[in-house]
Simulated assay, not measured.
Amino acid sequence: MGTMGTSQEHDEMDECVQALARVHSFLHNELVEADADAIRVHLHACERCMENFEIETTITEMIVRSQPVQQAPAALAARIQTMRLTRR
């Protein structure tokens, strides 16, 4: 046997690489539903990727909690709304 794993192991590794490359987009709900479903299926089937996903989720939650909630000044919000209405 060679040093490479089986083709099934290689395919599974490719799936892991693809899932983890898009985990941030998945966390931020930036994927179309079909792609999000594919990642969900992979995460449920792959313990290693699920562990990485849980770590990324925790980090994302910590970042969100550490950022103060800010709102644009009323005058700026009004200008933006006016710009949006005039561009349509």
Rank of each mutant, 00 (worst) to 15 (best):
E33S: 15
A74F: 04
R65W: 04
A78M: 04
C46D: 11
L31N: 04
L43I: 01
A78C: 06
A74L: 12
V41C: 01
F53I: 02
R48Y: 11
H42N: 13
D35F: 09
S25I: 14
R22H: 11
P68M: 00
V23W: 09
T57L: 12
I59L: 15
L76D: 10
Q81K: 12
E56H: 15
A34I: 15
H24W: 05
L31S: 08
E56R: 15
S25D: 10
R40H: 06
A36E: 10
Q67S: 07
R79D: 05
E30S: 09
F26Y: 12
V41A: 02
H28E: 07
V41P: 06
L31H: 05
D37Q: 12
D37W: 05
A34E: 11
T60K: 12
V64L: 09
A78D: 01
S66T: 09
R65L: 08
T60Q: 09
M62Q: 03
V64Q: 02
N29V: 13
Q67F: 13
I59E: 03
C49N: 03
A72F: 08
A74H: 05
Q67D: 10
A21K: 03
A21V: 02
A77N: 01
H24M: 14
E30M: 14
F53S: 01
P73H: 14
N29K: 13
R65T: 04
R40A: 09
Q67A: 10
L27W: 04
Q67T: 11
I39T: 08
V69E: 01
A38H: 00
T82C: 01
A72G: 07
D35H: 06
V41K: 12
P68F: 05
C46W: 04
I59W: 06
E47Q: 13
E54D: 07
M62H: 12
I55W: 07
I80D: 01
A34T: 13
A72T: 14
Q70P: 08
R65S: 03
T58P: 01
E51V: 05
V69Y: 01
H44Q: 15
E51Y: 11
M62G: 04
L43F: 04
H24C: 03
F26Q: 01
A74Y: 02
H24S: 10
L76S: 08
D37L: 15
I59D: 03
A38N: 02
R48E: 09
P73E: 11
A75L: 11
T82M: 11
A34P: 06
E30A: 14
V64C: 08
L43H: 00
F26I: 10
M62E: 13
V32F: 09
A34C: 14
N29C: 15
Q81H: 10
Q67V: 14
A72L: 15
N52S: 13
Q81M: 11
F26L: 02
I63G: 00
M62V: 10
A21R: 03
Q70M: 09
H28N: 11
A45S: 14
F53E: 04
A77K: 05
Q70F: 06
E61G: 03
